[in-house]
């Protein structure tokens, strides 16, 4: 474990708490103008369920196991809240990104490009590819609504920073222990790349107190 990865995981936690806080505070998934994509949250739950199949078999540390359990539980809880508790405020007409395309694409790629053709390894690889593009429905929704509540932008900032810091962690680990993992490196770079446009608007507008509005 290194500082970059620890802070990255904490940013991931922060993003989940921001989302839960927002939903709890506004008692909905759709504030005045900011909407949370159910598809993205469902994709994240799928990512954790397919990635942590080794939850009981591969004990790394108490930290690792605790975080895995928290990510699985919190992502399922968020899906539950959106699907049942705050269903009335969830308007599928705005969540129009074709999630089946990213699920199908990640599954196909995982069957072709993986480290081992075993069920667990292919599921893990699928979760890596899926996580890289899981934010697309949410970003797509932002382009449709054209703006987002500040708290939603902080959610996206934390989420984007988490994987961005993982990139730094991988550079550090390559440099100090010759750690190489092409699949997570390339997927992580794509994932962080998808946030670049958002980061630009976030830093140039939101942090200056302006509203988050897409040009």
């Amino acid at each position: 474990m290194n500082l970059f990865r620890l802070v990255a995981d904490l940013m991931h936690l922060v993003s989940i708490f921001i989302l839960l806080l927002k939903m709890q505070k506004t008692r909905s998934v759709a504030g005045r103008c900011s909407r949370i994509s159910f598809k993205t949250q469902a994709l994240y739950a799928t990512v954790f369920l397919t990635r942590y199949t080794d939850l009981f078999a591969n004990f790394q540390s108490l930290y690792n196991t605790t975080m895995k359990v928290f990510f699985i539980a919190s992502s399922l809880y968020i899906v539950f809240l959106m699907k049942f508790k705050f269903k009335a405020t969830n308007d599928p007409r705005l969540d129009t990104f074709k999630a089946q395309y990213v699920v199908g694409g990640a599954a196909a790629l995982a069957l072709i490009v993986n480290y081992a053709f075993t069920v667990q390894e292919v599921l893990w690889t699928f979760s890596i590819y899926l996580e890289a593009v899981a934010i697309l429905p949410q970003l797509f929704m932002l382009t449709k609504t054209g703006e987002a509540e500040v708290i939603t932008t902080h959610y996206l900032f934390a989420l984007g920073t988490y994987r961005g810091l993982y990139l730094v962690n991988w550079i550090y680990r390559y440099w100090t222990e010759y750690y190489v993992d092409w699949i997570v490196w390339i997927a992580g770079a794509v994932q962080t790349g998808l946030y670049c446009d958002f980061f630009y608007i976030y830093f140039t507008k939101v942090l200056k107190g302006a509203k988050f509005e897409l040009p």
Binding site: N58, Y115, W182
Partner: peptide
């Protein structure tokens, strides 16, 4: 291709 050792990252 070479698979990394144990999956020690989240």
């Amino acid at each position: 291709s070479s698979a990394p050792a144990a999956k020690d990252e989240l």
